[in-house]
């Protein structure tokens, strides 16, 4: 810099590009918010009146297109249970897989790369394909063979059932849990592992006593994402367990079940009188949204508690 040049820190001129991009990103955000507001507003305004205690607590008759007698209790129960059963399967298997990939699998070996690629591809598979896979693998292969082995007179396992729907969803959401767990395992400072190993802990002791407790919130995030994704999915359960109508709540894992998402589909496509069904449809969507929201909320609250405990710990 020459001695005659004066240095100052004021901007020379109006920074157009900065202004432009600030505006652009802001507009994009606004657009998303607007779309969300329109959707939620539309659903709430139209569905609010149908959303009554009677509606959520009634098991409907076979003809559930009458606003005065219908209800969605079996669907709420069905959706909740299938998500719950799915969680029981997907979290342990996903976590163990992630532990294998991050802690045990040789880094950058062909097999590790292959497994990672497979997991990533799994996440890109359309959900209807999972539905077909569930039908082919769980029901027609595993279910049928179980029936044969148990010598059941009629199909018990070899037919659509809650358990097969939950397992199909578990397969579908597995990548989410694996990736989230892997990320949280990788985020744990290597110093903690070293500290444990240097104190003479084995690898397993280190994972169980130091790594996993620390990774718990991250693992739960994976679980929450899986629950969110699974709660609204219809395609995977279409062939594997959902029923058009059931007179009673499911009480065995081999029972079929009714489902909120599927019910929305049924209401919108199978109704004899579309105008009459519309309020029921809106109310059901409200219930579906609230249920998904509630399931997430429960998981988030549990995670927050775990985090708090980790931070304060005793």
């Amino acid at each position: 810099m020459s001695a005659t040049t004066r240095r100052h820190f004021r901007a020379e001129k109006f920074d157009f590009s900065s202004f432009f991009f600030t505006g652009l990103t802001g507009l994009a955000t606004l657009l998303i918010l607007a779309i969300l507001a329109v959707i939620l507003g539309n659903i709430l305004i139209n569905g609010w009146q149908g959303f009554t205690w009677h509606f959520v607590s009634t098991i409907p008759k076979k003809n559930f297109f009458d606003i005065n007698t219908t209800g969605v209790l079996p669907m709420i129960v069905g959706t909740t249970i299938r998500v719950f059963v799915m969680t029981i399967f997907v979290v342990p298997i996903g976590v163990i897989t992630a532990i294998y990939l991050t802690e045990y699998a040789p880094n950058n070996s062909l097999i590790t790369k292959f497994i990672r690629a497979a997991v990533n591809n799994l996440a890109g598979v359309p959900s209807i394909v999972f539905g077909l896979f569930g039908l082919g693998f769980f029901i027609n292969f595993i279910g049928k063979h179980m029936d044969a082995m148990l010598q059941n007179p009629s199909a018990v396992w070899g037919q659509p059932a809650l358990i097969w729907a939950a397992l199909t969803l578990a397969v579908m959401t597995m990548p989410v849990v694996i990736v989230a767990t892997e990320e949280s395992l990788k985020a744990i400072p290597p110093g903690l592992r070293e500290a444990s190993l240097a104190l003479g802990a084995t690898k397993l002791e280190t994972i169980l006593r130091v790594v996993l407790p620390q990774a718990l919130p991250g693992i739960m995030t994976g679980g929450i994402l899986a629950v969110s994704r699974a709660a609204g999915e219809v395609a995977p359960i279409l062939f594997t367990g959902v029923a058009y109508y059931m007179a009673s709540l499911p009480h065995r894992v081999t029972d079929q079940f009714m489902d909120l998402g599927y019910h929305v589909f049924v209401l919108s496509t199978q109704s004899p009188n579309i105008e009459q069904t519309r309020p029921i449809l809106y109310a059901t969507v409200v219930v579906l949204l609230l249920l998904t929201f509630a399931l997430n909320l429960v998981a988030i609250i549990i995670r927050a508690r775990v985090r708090k405990k980790l931070r304060a710990l005793g």
């Binding site: 903690l192 444990s196 980790l310």
Partner: peptide, 26 residues
């Protein structure tokens, strides 16, 4: 042969549990 590292790396546990960690292990 114990070790102390460059970056202090206490476990995210209580002070007591940190010191007791090795004792619990062995």
């Amino acid at each position: 042969v114990g070790m102390v590292f460059q970056k202090s790396n206490p476990f995210p546990k209580s002070i007591y549990e940190n010191v007791a960690y090795g004792l619990h292990l062995h």
